[in-house]
């Protein structure tokens, strides 16, 4: 519990402008070690742009951010060694086998051969993919692919893993299993930063941040937000905030 106070993500007035368009507008927040932090928002609210800045994929226009203790402007190489990433699009190689994907990603994350072998075996066992390990990933069902994709993204035990809408297009049961993997990783001390637009998933997070038009519309634990907006579910909280966005547009 002492660990909970250790900050792994800190942003202050972080902004990203593309010409006149302000994709991310002055956001400031902190994420603790081992926390599951949900990033919610309608399409175009700036979720992905914000995440890309935190991963070192995109340089902020202004503001500060420290990821795992490293500066996003100057120390992107060090950041990259401490994070895992799973993108919206499915992010393994379809024409490599399960084993080859594990070997490849283990390799580029810099794991030793013995580590790759050991962790790979454990991973395959945990996902119950023993009989599929020599099959091409392209032949697996989507749910399994995503679970595998997540497991590969944390194979090098990163401090933080960024998940960009990881469960798009899978059924609720598989989504639930996927979240079991997330909880397990969080228990090991991995900080989870996840964007989603499924409101049931928002409930699974320790804390969530709802983005509206590039700004932070609301932030806090799901129960706290429900109380604050006098809503019975996260859905209602979200619609309340989204309506605000429409009014502003008009």
């Amino acid at each position: 519990m002492i660990n909970m106070k250790e900050l792994v993500i800190e942003t202050r007035n972080l902004s990203k402008r593309f010409g006149d368009f302000i994709a991310v507008d002055n956001i400031s927040f902190e994420v603790n070690k081992g926390e599951i932090f949900g990033f919610l928002g309608a399409n175009g609210a700036g979720k992905t742009t914000a995440m890309r800045m935190l991963c070192g994929l995109s340089i902020p226009s202004s503001g500060d951010a420290m990821i795992a203790g490293f500066d996003v402007y100057k120390e992107t190489e060090s950041i990259k060694k401490n994070i895992g990433y799973m993108s919206q699009k499915f992010s393994l190689y379809e024409n490599l086998t399960v084993e080859e994907n594990i070997q490849f990603f283990g390799g580029i994350y810099g794991l030793s051969n013995s580590d790759i072998k050991e962790k790979g075996r454990a991973l395959i066992q945990k996902l119950g993919l023993e009989s599929e390990s020599r099959k091409l990933v392209g032949s697996l069902p989507l749910g399994w692919k995503q679970k595998l994709s997540f497991s590969v993204a944390v194979i090098h035990e990163p401090k933080i893993v960024f998940l960009d809408e990881p469960t798009g297009g899978v059924d609720p049961l598989t989504r639930r299993q996927f979240w079991d993997l997330i909880y397990e990783a969080a228990d090991r001390g991995v900080t989870i930063f996840v964007t989603t637009h499924y409101m049931d998933e928002a409930e699974y997070c320790n804390r969530i941040c709802i983005m509206v038009d590039g700004k932070i519309g609301a932030m806090g634990a799901p129960d706290f937000l429900k109380k604050k907006f006098r809503a019975s579910s996260m859905d209602e909280v979200f619609y309340e905030l989204a309506r605000g966005a429409q009014r502003k547009d008009a």
Partner: peptide, 13 residues
């Protein structure tokens, strides 16, 4: 296109 490029760019590679 497949999105793997992003993963590679986020990796220490």
């Amino acid at each position: 296109e497949t999105g793997t490029m992003e993963i590679l760019l986020v990796s220490p590679f």
